[in-house]
């Protein structure tokens, strides 16, 4: 991605998955700043600067979101996000193991930009991140 100022918020509770994405970014030379939140509540706190957390500035324009998380899961987070006038425009990509129809439908109801299944094989995920990078460089984010 050309514009290095655009920051990305990764909402993911699995440490290895976080590592996975960071590694994939590194390999694809994606140098944008990546912030990590362990669940939906933490992510909201970071976006709004609550609970003694520093508000992320500039606000991330892209969120990579896991569905199955403790405390506040991805769908609940999305619901909250879309009702917040300041945050509703953020582009959200769901990254999940759940290929259940109801999760997919719920996510698209919340206007997600993409729904990506985490594959078991590492190579495939690399491909996905590469594609995402190409996609991000093509489109004009708000």
């Amino acid at each position: 991605m050309q514009d290095n100022k655009i920051s990305i918020l990764l909402v993911e509770d699995d440490e290895v998955d976080v590592m996975n994405i960071q590694r994939a970014f590194k390999k694809n030379h994606i140098t944008n700043p990546v912030h990590v939140a362990g669940n939906g509540l933490e992510a909201l706190a970071m976006l709004r600067g609550l609970d003694g957390r520093e508000k992320l500035t500039p606000a991330p324009k892209i969120i990579l979101l896991d569905i199955n998380m403790p405390k506040m899961n991805g769908i609940e987070f999305l619901t909250e996000l879309r009702t917040d006038p300041e945050l509703r425009a953020i582009s959200v990509f769901v990254l999940t193991t759940s290929d259940e129809e109801k999760d997919r439908v719920a996510a698209y109801d919340m206007n997600v930009a993409g729904y990506i299944l985490k594959p078991v094989e590492p190579g495939k995920f690399m491909e996905a991140v590469k594609t995402l990078d190409v996609f991000w460089s093509l489109i004009e984010l708000p």
Partner: peptide
């Protein structure tokens, strides 16, 4: 589903 997460971790 729950088995898949650690499996993916092992693979990675």
């Amino acid at each position: 589903h729950d088995l898949k997460a650690p499996l993916r971790a092992i693979a990675n």
